[in-house]
Design a protein around this nucleic acid. Sequence first.
DNA 1: GCGACAG
DNA 2: ATCTTGTCGC
Length: 273
Amino acid sequence: MTKTKLLLPLLQLRIAVNFKKRNGSRMLIQDSLKRKLIIQEDFPWRLPVLSNREEAETSETCDEILKYVGGVDLSFSKDDPSVACGTLVVLDIANLNVLYQDSSVVKLHIPYIPGFLAFREAPVLLELLKKMKTSASPFYPQLLMVDGNGILHPRGFGLACHLGVLADLPTIGIGKNLHHVDGLTLAKVRHCLEENSSKDIITLIGDSGRTLGAAMRSKEGSLKPIFVSVGHSISLATAIKIVKMTCRFRIPEPIRQADIRSKECLQKLNHEK
DNA sequence: GCGACAG
DNA sequence: ATCTTGTCGC
């Protein structure tokens, strides 16, 4: 009896120390990957003109035009939270049709810790991208939209940045909830949105003065915004344009489709059991 | 010390 | 992330 009363706190202490150590090394990894991060335009293509897309398709120039937009998301099993399905989709930005889809069911060993989402989710998604690249699919994305933040992150290096750097792809981070960072709070954001009710986008500037992203009412008259931030090799202005082009509903279509299809994948798996 | 904390 | 029904509206 007394033994357990003594050992329990010791075990908890050990666990807490290990937790701190692991996150410390993860912070170092984030800092070192961050040196490769590009926060400006760095891609070979240009945006399509959707109002007259016929013309854009057969443009006289030989410039590359953005067409293949990827989306990634994970869903989790309700029975076993360590079982997840990662999905990669690629849509045609001109009509938002799904051109490619692939899913992978995996067992996760790393827990979700705020600020360290990438260590849990990135491995599966990178594997899906790698598989697509090595299979020489003609639809390999020119840009990736990620379910999670970019530089809107405690150390300026969220999941979207992590994936962008490691996959060497332009990425855009999309948050469905605000990660409270650099003095930003939901109350402040709501206040700003109410003040400028004419605008559907407000820039998120932290206490440090840095521009971290944008809160965007992607659906007409919707109160709940989405949070757009730069992932890799793109500017916030371009990221916002692309998000607008891909929003049929509140969540941009590439991410929404990845979400829907990853859930379907788990459903099927459950059904087979 | 307390609260906050993407998915 | 996940558990959850109906319901109000275009």
